[in-house]
């Protein structure tokens, strides 16, 4: 499989593009926040760890073999500056399974940006990469996140209780998923 889209990818209000080394400060601005880290597996990030993470992400912009990841920076069209990050991961090549993820700067929450970006990720996964099923995971307590998944037409397929111990506490996790034909049916409406 080769899925190597042309960037930037645009939606109504957003521009999605690969990360560059110049994005460190913008990403650090929200990744250092405790409220952003709260539902992620790691704690708030230092500037060095953000720089390291972005270094790893540069060049991760196509899916060729199982495990490949696309990481994209999210900008609004009206002004440049990173307001969040997206991922699309090829989890299982034979089963054409993919996983999506999104993190947005809290200053930009509540405006439908995550849903708009997420819809584009599904389109990339199904239309672009030819996936059969796409799933997303989040902490059960992260209501804003799973409501986005529901708005995207994803179904809750799993509710794991105390299945892991994360940052000193029992973890509770939701898995949402959507199949290609379900997505196409919803798109036609």
């Amino acid at each position: 499989m080769v899925y190597a889209p042309r960037y930037p990818i645009e939606t109504d209000r957003l521009r999605l593009r690969p990360f560059t080394r110049g994005d460190v400060d913008a990403v650090f601005a929200y990744r250092q926040r405790a409220d952003v880290a709260r539902y992620l597996s790691d704690g708030p990030m230092t500037r060095e760890s953000v720089a390291e993470a972005l270094q790893m992400r540069v060049g991760q912009e196509a899916l060729r073999v199982e495990g490949d990841k696309i990481f994209l920076a999210v900008e609004t069209k009206e002004r440049s500056g990173v307001i969040g990050e997206l991922s699309l991961i090829l989890r299982d090549e034979a089963g054409r399974q993919g996983e999506i993820g999104y993190i947005l700067d809290p200053g930009y929450h509540g405006q439908g940006y995550a849903t708009e970006a997420g819809a584009k990720l599904l389109e990339m996964g199904f239309d672009g990469a030819g996936l059969h099923r796409i799933y997303a995971r989040c902490a059960a307590a992260n209501h804003a996140s799973w409501r986005v998944m529901e708005r995207l037409g994803m179904r809750r397929e799993a509710h794991f209780r105390e299945h892991a111990f994360v940052k000193g506490a029992w973890d509770e996790e939701f898995v949402y998923a959507v199949l290609e034909d379900e997505w196409r049916t919803a798109e036609r409406r």
Partner: peptide, 11 residues
């Protein structure tokens, strides 16, 4: 308890 129902998650 049923915690997950994965549909077409693998071949």
């Amino acid at each position: 308890r049923l915690e997950a129902h994965y549909r077409e998650h693998a071949m």
